[in-house]
Design a protein around this nucleic acid. Structure first.
Lengths: 347, 347
DNA sequence: ACTTGGCACTCGGGACCAGAGAGTGCCAGC
DNA sequence: GCTGGCACTCTCTGGTCCCGAGTGCCAAGT
């Protein structure tokens, strides 16, 4: 009774079940796979697999279904990420090509992922904290008000308007704004935003008392942008795909939709994954701490410019999903998006 | 046999059915409402209402259910928009208070609407074409590239980067940018964006041949922003509420979710409503041209600064919805959002 | 001319039951 | 340690029956 064969059996069960969504019995298994043994033998193996908690029979006279743990073993030891077909690859490039700005990139990405995997796609906006500053611009917009525009390397642009408390339409005022702009960019350009924010704070001291509150208010605005980070946003698409695979979900899909509306929770989930952007992370069923998502799996991976992960994306589907294909799609999309973000043309 | 009483009966049927979601029979009706007549009489009225196509019996021995037409009559002639409770009003202001930017306003609004009505909320971003220009800023971002920032009266900020084909880091270049900036704002500030775009085009001629392509590329970028209007975006929330009221939907909620993912279609629906921002528009069941939404109703209304409608918002739910309350909530939220957009503090 | 009580009728839904089919567990033999 | 055989268990499907809710119609009352 080789352990090797038992794992073959497990793999066969997972594959069949994913395909047919029916519990799979010993007879069907030996017919569809070349296991080289009889149904009775398979039954013995199944009994053992069940003891190990890898599969489970919904009731006495039904076939077996993989448990979360079974899927886990499948993903970790029994499957390889399938390369995508040529068609799929070109579809990805086609779809992402021609995005006009960051919003558009994110939007297209999430739709692409959803249609590619036929599941719910989740894309996190590139975070500020993990980005580096490309440029900070100050634009006087009348009276004492200045628009502060922050451009980071992911192409994300953040702006807000601050009241400096001092009329800047004068010659002096304009000169001051110019000075502040120059110094700020001296200090911040090319620097990770989080670091830049603290250096900027020390920069304030450099200015004479009377001018200080102008730069002060600008720096404060930038710090706020960092702290609030309400822009830790996620975008979803493909919720309709949940309805298609009803039957995979014990109760209704309501709780799942509810969980998906808790963007904060999704962000936490997406955040808890490997730093290595090459590793596709999979959270299966109950491994998932969020109630409501315990009959789903989340396949996610980081993306970003260079080798720094700036955000994550992934798809969420029933635990009964085609992991190899899904993982391949997620990884491929993440790579393309990273490329696009890294390519200055498109920012 | 007064027509008056027949309409009373219709109203009673709608109210009971909305509340219980069970077909309502003649006996239950006379018990719950003071109609002053017997069940048999009500039955006669019901027969007539059915002939008129206002109600319908799912099968011979069941109670009656309003048809789309029945709801129509109810909404048009039998209901008044309920004033909101004091608590609801303060909830709205609380929830919307403290939004930091337009994205945030829209985001909070859609969530608020969803939780208030317990249905799917839809909010359209304020459109560019309907807004007036507040300010246009040009920011050189290295070499020949300029970031064009458009700020409109709704607080929406649109930016894109253009390549002017000419190095602007020189003294001459900077002066040219300054000239272009000044003239552009002379022409465009305070003007509806659509009008501004055409005036700007004529402005190009004003510049000497050699400088022309700089302003040319800027104006082109602005025109593109107008044309693409890919930013005609909608934001949704509360999809999970669909699952709650399953049972109202003949088939699964899948088709509805699918329809909701077609943002283009939603935009068209939201666009097709009265210009008058005071009128709450209701589209009931099959009145709705979109297949997939034919078992739902859309309650929508315009919103915007001043008396100009710049966008719409609404909620989508089962045709069996509490119209008076829903309409009240939608209208109230639209008003508050309009106020906030009109208030320059928050932009 | 309406309204009303009475009554026969219809239909959907739940309870119950039986049979079929699929799949298992176990055992004895190889 | 593998295999074929066999008894057993359980779900699922379809059929039947009954109950209750609600209707439509009619004849009588105001």
């Amino acid at each position: 009774m080789s352990e090797d064969r038992r794992l073959h059996v497990l793999r066969a069960i997972v594959q069949d079940y994913v395909q047919t969504s029916e519990p799979v019995g010993s007879k069907a298994l030996v017919e569809r796979h070349q296991l080289g043994v009889s149904a009775a033998t398979v039954r013995n193996d199944m009994a053992l697999l069940e003891e190990e908690g890898l599969i489970h029979a919904p009731h006495t006279s039904a076939g077996r279904v993989p448990t979360d743990l079974g899927y886990r073993v499948f993903v970790d030891r029994l499957s390889e990420i399938k390369p995508l077909s040529r068609g799929e690859r070109t579809a990805i490039t086609q779809f992402l090509h021609g995005a006009v700005d960051l919003d558009d990139i994110v939007d297209r990405t999430v739709r692409l992922l959803a249609s590619l995997t036929r599941q719910v796609a989740v894309v996190q906006y590139p975070s500020l904290t993990r980005s580096t500053v490309r440029h900070i611009e100050l634009v006087p917009v009348g009276g004492p008000r200045v628009m502060v525009v922050l451009i980071v390397n992911t192409g994300r642009v953040e702006q807000r308007i601050v009241d400096t408390g001092r009329d800047l339409t004068t010659v002096d005022g304009e000169a001051l704004v110019a000075r502040v702009r120059t110094r700020i960019n001296d200090v911040a350009a090319g620097v990770p935003f989080r670091v830049a924010a603290t250096s900027l704070r020390t920069l304030v001291e450099e200015f004479p008392e009377g001018d200080r509150h102008v730069i002060e208010s600008v720096v404060t605005a930038l710090e706020e942008a960092l702290v609030e980070e309400r822009e830790e946003r996620v975008v979803l698409a493909g919720q309709a795909n949940l309805a298609r695979s009803r039957g995979d979900f014990p109760r209704s899909i309501g709780p799942i939709l509810e969980a998906l509306e808790e963007h904060v929770v999704l962000l936490r989930l997406l955040g808890e994954l490997s730093e290595d952007p090459e590793v596709v992370s999979v959270r299966i069923g109950h491994e998932n701490p969020v109630s409501g998502l315990q009959s789903t799996s989340l396949v996610s991976v980081g993306y970003g410019t260079g080798n720094e992960r700036v955000a994550s994306l992934g798809v969420l589907g029933p635990t009964r999903m085609d992991y190899p294909t899904t993982m391949a799609a997620v990884r491929a999309v993440a790579r393309y998006v990273s490329d696009i973000l890294g390519d200055p043309r498109s920012n």
